[in-house]
Design a protein around this nucleic acid. Structure first.
Lengths: 136, 136
DNA sequence: TCAACTCCTTTCATTAATCAAGTAAAAACG
DNA sequence: CGTTTTTACTTGATTAATGAAAGGAGTTGA
């Protein structure tokens, strides 16, 4: 399915997805055309899901990064799920998990005040346990 | 610092970082050259940290996605930290957190057997609480 | 008012991406 | 075992994007 050249391509694209096909080809000892064809295959197969950027959230003003364990009060999760859909920019990921809690909610906030206000709203739907990310 | 056009550029690049500057320029009503200059500024300021790809880990064989809360046994975290450095492909992120546990370790595994073996090794350094991610 | 600066456009030379053909090796098949 | 098909690549020609330079409009501040 994937040969070492494909792995190498994925690795290089992870490091810099805006690299030219010509340059990427030089790294894997192929022409730009052959490299481009391999990348197209990786896209078609769904292994490459998309191309994106890493954004420095702190420089954008999001200085608080939190992981919130969610404990739903009832068996109806819909109110919670539709609530967090309305909470974009703050919500990064909502993982459904097996273990202690029901969900693990990854969020970012510009300040503790905004986090506090978010938690007040959140608490109408679920109970939670807050963890603040100090570093990565 | 950032005007609406910059926000739009970040948004479009998040969705597709391989878009051409010309095409991106059309979306924000600028020429390719002007767009390119803005993107270069966003890079220089550190707001854009890099260009990367989203990889489908399941198609790469990593079917188990786990969040592991880490409770260090002693105040010396170095043995744990150097251990996880040796555990690449499995470790995705290691967050230092404030809250109940010391770290939150995000990992991926090809099978429960590999996860199990990892936990046995991990337990030499720390105690843990395992959560399996069911969906996102 | 004028100089300096920012931000953009236009133009043009360079470079990369794309498309079409052609080739060689491996795989599939009678 | 030979033939056909497929796969993966290269080369070459065309099209498109990029990068550099020059210039114009609007803004800031002495």
């Amino acid at each position: 399915m994937l040969d070492p050249t494909d792995i190498r391509i994925l690795d290089e694209l992870s490091k810099n997805s805006r690299i030219t096909m010509k340059e990427l080809g030089e790294k894997v000892h192929l022409t730009g055309q052959a490299t481009s064809a391999r990348v197209a295959k990786l896209e078609d197969s769904g292994i490459i899901e998309g191309y994106t950027i890493k954004i420095n959230q702190i420089k954008l003003g999001y200085v608080v990064h939190a992981m919130i364990s969610i404990f739903t009060k009832s068996t109806h999760h819909e109110p919670y799920l539709s609530f967090i859909k309305t909470q974009e920019p703050y919500v990064i990921n909502n993982y459904k998990i097996g273990g202690d809690s029901c969900y693990l909610l990854e969020c970012k906030f510009p300040s503790n005040e905004v986090l506090d206000a978010f938690l007040v709203r959140l608490n109408k739907y679920v109970n939670y346990k807050l963890s603040i990310i100090i570093s990565k």
